[in-house]
């Protein structure tokens, strides 16, 4: 075929595919937060929406079971919860919940969930908590999810409708790694990632999600784990800023216990470190090759640190909660008392 005709064929094919895939392209563009490209993607999506050209692609997506998200906002979920909650329950939630000490005869239900980082961490956590003999763990992770894209996966809704009805005493939760992307607020306005309006909207979602996790009888604790620092070469930035939001919002909510993962995956200057010594002094790889996800060793390290933290809130003496030195962090590694909004080298 002549080169000129090939150019026409390619150009037309790109245009047709671009129109048919407009919604998908916009979703990806929103996720990447890529400025002028996002504007183009929005314009194309608006055109296809007007002429219903996206029907073909949306039908395929529906048939494939994509887009498990909904448009239900956290505020709506909160309103429903408030209607069901009594004033006495709100009063009880002003102090850290006191949980009954678990025993092998009556183990404690513990739920761990979040994004793909929780996949590794959660699997370690599930294995280790099970080995203590006093927990009944449940792992519930969904890759590429967070609080930024309820249209893709609506975590607050999932928590309220699917997780809380199972009555876990403790939830261990981690989001953030996928949230550094543009968002659309409740009014449909697109917000540039990490811009001031974006921060306000994200903080609103975090706060509301935390409120949703409050138990009416104040008998549930959520360990909210901030994401660890991301390594060089990754495109995941701003975890320090998200951690600051989680930490500051947790300060006024006793049922939310913020867990600071940062020191456990950084050097003494709080700078990302892929290899770190555990309590036995042996240096091991804490991260997967992508420098984002935790390795099994890293998952074990975080699991024991979180169990240690739970032990400060609940009596775990009936279980085998002494970590092997090869799996636990050194005693010198501790959480920070304050989480600053910006960390050097985090970008």
């Amino acid at each position: 075929m002549p080169a000129g005709l090939i150019l026409v064929v390619i150009l037309l094919a790109f245009c047709v595919a671009g129109l048919l895939n407009a919604d998908s392209t916009l979703r990806k563009s929103n996720a990447k937060g890529d400025g002028w490209r996002n504007e183009i993607a929005k314009t194309v999506a608006a055109v296809t929406d007007t002429f219903q050209i996206n029907f073909f692609r949306n039908t395929i997506d529906d048939a494939l079971g994509k887009n498990q998200g909904t448009k239900i906002d956290v505020e709506e979920l909160l309103r429903q919860q408030a209607e069901a909650e009594s004033a006495a329950a709100a009063e009880a939630a002003q102090k850290v919940p006191e949980l009954v000490a678990p025993t092998p005869a009556e183990p404690m239900k513990i739920w761990v969930g979040g994004d793909s980082i929780t996949q590794t961490f959660g699997t370690s956590f599930q294995r280790i908590t099970q080995s203590t003999g006093i927990f009944t763990p449940t792992l519930d992770f969904h890759v590429s999810t967070g609080l930024a894209r309820p249209d893709y996966y609506n975590w607050p809704e999932h928590l309220v409708k699917d997780v809380l009805p199972t009555n876990p005493s403790i939830l261990v939760i981690m989001f953030g790694a996928n949230d550094g992307q543009n968002m659309v607020d409740a009014s449909g306005k697109a917000l540039q990632r990490y811009s001031e309006p974006w921060m306000i909207e994200y903080r609103r979602r975090v706060a509301a999600t935390m409120d949703l996790l409050k138990a009416p009888e104040n008998n549930r604790i959520t360990i909210w784990c901030g994401p660890p620092p991301m390594g060089p070469g990754t495109k995941t930035h701003g975890m320090d800023q998200l951690n600051y939001i989680y930490w500051s919002e947790a300060q006024t909510r006793p049922w939310i216990q913020y867990f600071d993962t940062w020191p456990f995956f950084s050097d003494t200057n709080y700078v990302f470190a892929a290899n770190l010594p555990n309590a036995d002094g042996v240096v091991r790889g804490m991260r997967q090759k992508d420098n984002v996800h935790l390795s099994t060793v890293g998952g074990d390290r975080l699991s024991w640190a979180v169990i240690d933290r739970i032990g400060k809130l609940v009596d775990l003496s009936a279980g085998n909660v002494t970590p092997p030195p090869s799996q636990a962090p050194p005693a010198s590694v501790v959480e920070r008392t304050e989480v600053p909004p910006n960390m050097p080298g985090a970008e």
């Binding site: 790109f14 047709v16 395929i60």
Partner: peptide, 12 residues
């Protein structure tokens, strides 16, 4: 048409 269809299929 085939190329456009292919691109939609791969993306979906």
């Amino acid at each position: 048409a085939a190329l456009a269809g292919g691109l939609v299929l791969v993306d979906a």
